[in-house]
Amino acid sequence: MPLELVTLRCLTDNYAYLLHSNAGTVLIDAPEALPVLTELDARGWGLDAILLTHHHDDHIQAVPEIVAATGARVMGAAADAHRLPPLDMRLAPGEPLEVLGESVSVIEVSGHTIGHVAFHCPESGLAFTADSLMAMGCGRLFEGDAPTMWASLQRLDALPGDTLICSGHDYCAGNGAFALSVDPENEALQARLQAIAEARQPCAPATLETERATNPFLRAAALAESLGMAGAPEAEVFARLRQMKDRF
C-alpha cells in the first residue's frame, strides 16, 4: 500500500512531511517541533525516524526536541554529517534504504548546499526534494554552482512524471512572479497561479509533470530563445535564469 503523506506547515514558510504506514511513521526534515508533535498526538502516532535533507537550521533545528519527545532515530547524508545533528544512520546516494517497508532512493542534489540529498519513494510516487527542486523554482546557490545544481535538477527530472514533488518551502508568491516574468505566455503556469490564488490547489506538493510545465528552471530549452540564448547549452540557460532570479 502507498505510504500515507501528511504535509505540515512550519515556521513561516517551511514544509515538513510525515509518512505513515502500518509499519510506523517517519518525518522528513524538522523545522519546528510544535506542528509535528501536535499532528502526531492528534493522530495517535509515534515517530520512528527523522530523515534530514540538508544542514540549514530551518530544516534541522527541531530535531533535539522531537527526538526527546519521541525517541526517533535520525538519518541524514554521510557527506553532511559534520553539520547535521548526531546521526543514528549515515546515508549515501545510491545505497539501499528501506523506510516503512518501502525501498527509498537517496539522490544527491547538491547545489543549494553541498551534501544536500533528496528521498524518492517510487512505490508511493513521492520525492522529498527540500531546497533543490521547489515549487516553480529551485534553491538559491549558497554553496554549489550552477552546473552542480543543473545536474541535480536533471537527476530529479528523470523521475516519473506522476511523482509528487514535496519541496521544502512555500515560496509560491516570489517563484510564481518570477516564472511569469520570464514565461508570460505559459498557460499552464497562469492556470497554476490562479488555482493557488483561489486556494483550489496547494503550492506544494505538486507533480513533477506540473513542475515540468510551469517551473522555469526545468524549462531551459523552451526559454532559451526568449532569453537571447537560442542554441546555447541548457545548463547555461539555467545559469542565466538563476542569476536573473537572484536579482528579481
Rank of each mutant, 00 (worst) to 15 (best):
V6R: 15
K245E: 15
A146G: 05
R73S: 14
G228T: 01
E95S: 14
A188K: 13
A33K: 03
F128C: 06
A69W: 07
D41I: 08
P2R: 12
N14R: 15
G71D: 03
H169S: 12
L11K: 07
L91H: 04
H112V: 10
L37H: 08
L227S: 07
A130Q: 13
I196F: 02
D246H: 14
S124C: 09
V237Y: 03
D80C: 04
T7D: 06
A127M: 12
V99S: 09
G71M: 05
T25W: 03
A151E: 04
W45V: 07
V237M: 07
D162W: 10
F217P: 01
H20V: 11
F128G: 05
R242Q: 15
R200S: 10
L189M: 02
G139F: 07
L164G: 11
S110H: 00
A79I: 06
L227R: 09
A179N: 09
S103F: 09
C10E: 10
L241Q: 01
A222W: 03
S21I: 09
H54E: 15
A206Q: 15
D162N: 15
F119P: 08
P35R: 01
A197D: 13
A77V: 02
L84K: 02
L159V: 10
A146T: 10
A195W: 06
A79C: 12
P202C: 01
L227G: 08
A213G: 01
L87H: 04
A135Q: 04
A81T: 11
C121K: 00
L223H: 08
E185G: 15
D57Q: 15
A146P: 06
V117W: 01
R155W: 00
E143I: 11
S21V: 08
L159P: 05
A221I: 05
A69V: 12
A204Q: 08
D170L: 02
H56I: 14
H59C: 08
T25S: 14
S110E: 04
W150T: 01
L241K: 00
L87P: 02
D58L: 14
L208M: 05
V26H: 06
G174V: 04
L153H: 03
S21G: 14
R240A: 14
P122S: 07
T129A: 03
L241F: 00
V36E: 07
L156W: 00
A224E: 09
L164Y: 09
D183S: 14
R83Q: 14
A146W: 05
Y171Q: 10
P2L: 11
A230M: 08
V99K: 09
H54Q: 15
V237R: 08
R200M: 05
E143Q: 15
R9F: 07
F128E: 08
P205H: 07
T7K: 11
S167A: 14
A68I: 11
A146I: 06
